[in-house]
Amino acid sequence: MNPGAPARIVLGAACLVGLIAAVAVLTGAVRVGSGEPSGPAPSAAAMTAPPVVAPDPTGGTPATVLAVADPVTMDVRLEDGRALRVRALGIQPPEACYSGQALAFARRTLAGRAVTLAGDGHSDRFSRALAWVTLSQGDDYAVLAAEAGVVSSYAADAPAERMPAVRAASERARVAGRGLWGPPCIGGPAGTNAAVSGTPG
């Protein structure tokens, strides 16, 4: 037997094992360093799917309000035809007292109207797209509703720079005793002031 033959056989076997390992890593059969099977690669569509209300460099996403479910929840249609359920940021609806009047205000103010939505692609646990809502004439819906006393200010998820105007409007309504800040919600029968408890909506 050729004296160099065993060394060549061992070297050849080592090369073959290395080649098999390289092919396994390249095909995704083995995750490097873990020894576990790798999961399927994300599809191109999943990696490029747009957020629910994408940021718009011109100041917002135009939409039309199709229906109003409660003082902060509305169904809208975007210009591209998509329908979304939106949760208006900056405000909190009444839980009990004054909830009917608050819903009537929201429907009167929003239903069928053109609005602009400013969001960052986030949604809440109810799958509502979170967005700041502005009416076509430039009126801030959160400020209008807070001024009317049909909602209270609510900063969770809202842009910090927008909240001072909402808080000021809510304070004016409170001082004036308007809406949920007046009778029967405030100073009414026991239990009727649940509307201002501040729990998430």
Rank of each mutant, 00 (worst) to 15 (best):
I186L: 12
S136W: 06
R172I: 07
D139K: 08
A190W: 03
M163C: 00
C185R: 03
L180W: 11
S136L: 04
P164R: 10
A169E: 07
P184A: 10
D157H: 14
P183M: 08
S153P: 08
E147H: 12
G188W: 11
A165N: 09
A168C: 09
A145M: 04
P164H: 13
A190L: 09
E161L: 05
V143H: 01
R178I: 11
C185Q: 11
D157F: 15
G182M: 01
D140W: 03
R167K: 13
V150S: 11
A156M: 11
R178H: 11
A176P: 02
G188E: 14
P159K: 09
C185S: 09
V133I: 13
G138Q: 01
G188P: 03
C185M: 13
R167N: 14
G177S: 02
T192Q: 15
L180N: 00
D157A: 15
Q137L: 03
T192A: 04
A165C: 10
R162D: 13
L144V: 14
P183V: 14
R167S: 09
R167Q: 14
T134N: 01
V166P: 02
A176I: 06
T134R: 03
G138L: 09
L135R: 12
Q137R: 14
G179S: 05
G188H: 04
T192S: 14
R167A: 13
G187M: 04
A156G: 07
T192V: 01
P183S: 13
P189K: 09
P164M: 05
G188D: 12
A156C: 01
V150D: 13
D139L: 02
G187L: 03
A160F: 01
A169Y: 05
R172F: 07
R172A: 15
A148M: 06
C185G: 03
W181Q: 03
G188V: 09
A173P: 06
V133K: 10
A169T: 10
A160V: 15
A156L: 14
P164I: 09
A190Y: 07
V150Q: 11
P164V: 10
A176L: 06
I186N: 13
P183H: 11
M163R: 03
E147M: 05
G187F: 01
D139M: 07
V175G: 01
N193Y: 06
P159N: 08
P159A: 09
M163G: 03
W181E: 04
I186W: 05
S136K: 14
N193I: 00
A173V: 08
G177A: 08
A190N: 00
S170N: 14
A156Q: 15
A146V: 02
N193F: 02
G188C: 10
Y141K: 03
A168P: 05
L135C: 07
S136H: 14
A169C: 08
A146K: 05
E161S: 15
N193Q: 13
M163W: 00
E171M: 10
Y154V: 02
V143I: 12
V166H: 03
A173L: 06
D139P: 01
D140V: 05
P183T: 11
A165D: 08
Y154P: 00
V133N: 06
A142P: 05
R172D: 12
P183W: 15
A148G: 15
G187R: 04
A155R: 13
Y154H: 13
T134H: 02
G187Y: 07
G179Q: 02
G182R: 09
